[in-house]
Amino acid sequence: MNLFRLLGDLSHLASIFILIHKIQTTRSCRGISFQTQALYVTVFVARYIDLFFRWISLYNFFMKIFFIASSVYILYLMKYRYRPTHDPSIDTFKVEYLVGPAVVLSLIFNYKFEFTEILWTFSIYLEAVAILPQLFMLQRTGEAETITTHYLAALGAYRALYIPNWIYRYFTEDVVDPIAIVAGLVQTGLYLDFFYVYFTKVLQGQKFELPA
């Protein structure tokens, strides 16, 4: 564990708390892509299936439990509790275009052709692009509530912070994980446009609005 990874994980935790807070205080999941949230459940379940056979640490254990539980809870909030506030007509990204390639890529590019190893690889590839339905929705509506942009910023910061973590691990532990690194770079890259608007508008006190 190093500081970058810890800050990344805390940022990830914060993003989830921000999202739950947004849904509960506004009593609405307006502006949140159900598809992206469903993809995150898929990602966490596929990756953290190793809770059953791999012990890393108490920290790792509780974080995994938290990520699975909170992502399922968010789906519940969206699907049942605040269902009327979700508008499927603007959440129309075709998730099969993400899940399909992630399955194929994980079957080709993996460290070992084993079921749980392929599930791990699949979860890494899928996570890299899971934010796309959300960003697509943002693009479509052209605006977002400020709290939603804080959620996205914290989520983007999480993967961005993993990059210095990998550089640090390369020099201190001689560990290189090419699959995680390539996917992580792609994932962080997807946030660049968003970050630009977030820093130049939201953090200057303006509303998040995309140019028409």
Binding site: D9, E117, D177, A180
Partner: peptide, 10 residues
């Protein structure tokens, strides 16, 4: 398993 990455990240 020496040649497989440890997967110790979240």
């Amino acid at each position: 398993d020496g040649n497989v990455i440890a997967h110790d990240e979240l």
